[in-house]
Nucleic acid binder design. Structure first.
Lengths: 116, 116
DNA sequence: CTTGACCTTCACGCTGACGTGAACCCCTAC
DNA sequence: GTAGGGGTTCACGTCAGCGTGAAGGTCAAG
């Protein structure tokens, strides 16, 4: 299928799909005319990628561990190996940092505004 | 005083001080040789700016409302006018959005990692 | 033949506060 | 004179995932 169909079926924009390819997380075949050619399995793959993106995983990490992704009845999950576990933990830690930073901003903003 | 001294006394880098000037939030005098010349009051002003930056206020907002800043026993506060109130509320809303987004990422990341 | 809806590859824009050289001037001290 | 430690102004790099034209090729339909 063409890129616009894959986009429609996954809810991911065509631009995003090309971006995934740029980052090496989604390899596409090519038709003789140069158009990107996708298969049914790519639909699943894109949904896996999207799930990982939404979970805060950077494309650099997704590229290396996309094969750990499994799509089951409970949605997308990752088969953890030590290396992936370490990356995920680091990402979780960063998210926690950002959350703390935002929390501080909220407090500072509140302290800055009398009777806010 | 010169820029490095102001930097040392405020904990704000010289680069950041020049950045503040670029953004129009900190006006500096000039010595005959072209060096930026700061006064004692600039120390207070920089600390006010830093407090506002740390609270999430963008330099564009700080530039317009820096004169609302007051430094007292309870730290830096802002004298609120309707316009500033609106901006601060908008910033608070954005912080809340980001917080919600992070919260969702945390959940999705947890759902992605079995027995995480 | 000509729309017109697809597709392609660049490549800048965005959100923000700086970091980091590059290339060069000022002034003091040895 | 010559280091050497300031200072100055550009101006691109950073972090991320796309949005948004721009310029142009492909192909089925009228």
């Amino acid at each position: 299928m063409l890129i616009s169909e894959l986009a429609a079926r996954t809810g991911v924009s065509a631009r995003a799909l090309r971006h995934y390819e740029e980052r090496g997380v989604l390899v596409a075949g090519r038709d003789p005319n140069g158009y990107r050619a996708y298969s049914e399995s790519d639909v699943v793959r894109v949904l896996q990628i999207k799930t990982m993106i939404d979970a805060g995983l950077p494309t650099s990490t997704i590229r290396r561990y996309i094969d750990c992704a499994r799509t089951g009845d409970h949605g997308v999950t990752l088969e953890m190996c030590p290396a992936l576990r370490a990356e995920v933990d680091a990402i979780a830690a960063r998210i926690e940092e950002q959350r703390a930073s935002l929390e501080e901003k909220r407090e500072r903003l509140g302290a800055l505004t009398p009777e806010g």
